[in-house]
């Protein structure tokens, strides 16, 4: 019975948090651009509006894939709250992205297809880093289970500083923020119209938007994992981390996929690998 209530609370609270964070994001972005900015509840207005629009789909499978994207994200967040297997959460997150890509590929629109291809390339870029992060956490704590990871007697960041840097780097790709917003963009419509979400409209687009909020909460929970020992440190770290994302979003221009792939595999994966070797020697060999 208790599990059902926790699940229900997670499913309700997570999008509220995600939506408010998105709203604050938009407000801060506006202030940085010397604008007044939309109200903080604006993402909710957008979502409600999308749900009250007419449903137009090019092919019916689009609805299924948009729905799967949302469901997989919800499942990943709920699994994190229940402190289950980290590796499995990562795979489910990958399934969610795959559903979105398949949804975009289900139509013949060139914009939607190019967006899907770019999304595939960004999955190719960030997935090795995420896997490296989880393997490194395994080396330090000896378990993939979040329950056991939380029992580790010091902050994970002390052992995994470079992994955290690499993860913050990947976070920009995952949140589709400016230097890496090449699959879908909130700002540049000249290039790809709307990239991966071009062919989704009305309530179906609303489902994807909702899925993004769950995804955002899950990614911030990953940040929390590095500072799990102390709740105040963790919240401060999450806020600083997200603020830096907003700053980077505002000061950088969009890169091409080639540069993104090169940079992520050399810099971010390099950082992760160095840290991986370090913790392997420290915990497995000594």
């Amino acid at each position: 019975m208790k599990e059902i209530w926790i699940t229900l609370a997670t499913v309700i609270v997570a999008p509220l948090v995600g939506g408010i964070i998105t709203g604050i994001d938009r407000k801060i972005t506006a202030r940085m651009q010397n604008r007044f900015g939309p109200p903080i509840l604006q993402p909710f207005y957008d979502l409600f509006k999308l749900f009250s629009k007419e449903t137009i789909v090019v092919s019916n499978t689009q609805i299924l894939y948009a729905f799967l994207f949302l469901v997989f994200n919800i499942v990943a967040v709920v699994m994190f709250v229940f402190k289950m297997d980290l590796l499995l959460i990562l795979f489910i997150l990958a399934f969610a992205t795959t559903a979105l890509i398949l949804g975009a590929m289900a139509t013949n629109s060139p914009y939607s297809r190019i967006g899907a291809h770019r999304e595939l390339i960004s999955v190719l870029a960030y997935e090795p880093v995420l896997i490296a992060m989880i393997v490194a956490i395994y080396f330090v704590t000896g378990s993939f289970n979040i329950e056991d990871i939380l029992k580790h007697n010091s902050l994970l960041i002390l052992d995994l500083p470079f992994i955290f840097v690499a993860f913050s780097y990947v976070l920009t790709i995952k949140l589709r923020k400016s230097p890496f917003d090449l699959s879908t963009s909130h700002h540049g419509h000249q290039e790809l119209v709307k990239g991966i979400t071009t062919e989704f409209s009305g309530p179906v687009l609303g489902l994807i938007e909702l899925g993004h909020w769950y995804e955002l909460v899950l990614l911030l929970l990953f940040v929390w994992l590095f500072f799990a020992k102390n709740i105040f440190v963790a919240i401060t770290a999450i806020l600083i981390c997200y603020f830096l994302e907003i700053v980077i979003d505002n000061i950088s221009a969009r890169l091409t996929w080639k540069i993104m792939l090169k940079l992520t595999w050399s810099v971010a994966f390099g950082f992760a690998l160095v840290n991986l070797i370090w913790v392997y020697i420290k915990y497995r060999l000594l």
Binding site: A30, R35, F36, G37, P38, Y45, H189, Q190, T198
Partner: peptide, 21 residues
């Protein structure tokens, strides 16, 4: 442009008829 900042009313130029109102 930021001078008039229509985003404060929630107005966004989406450039995609499938998203537009």
């Amino acid at each position: 442009t930021p001078v008039y900042d229509v985003e404060r009313f929630g107005i966004i130029n989406v450039g995609n008829p499938k998203h537009a109102d």
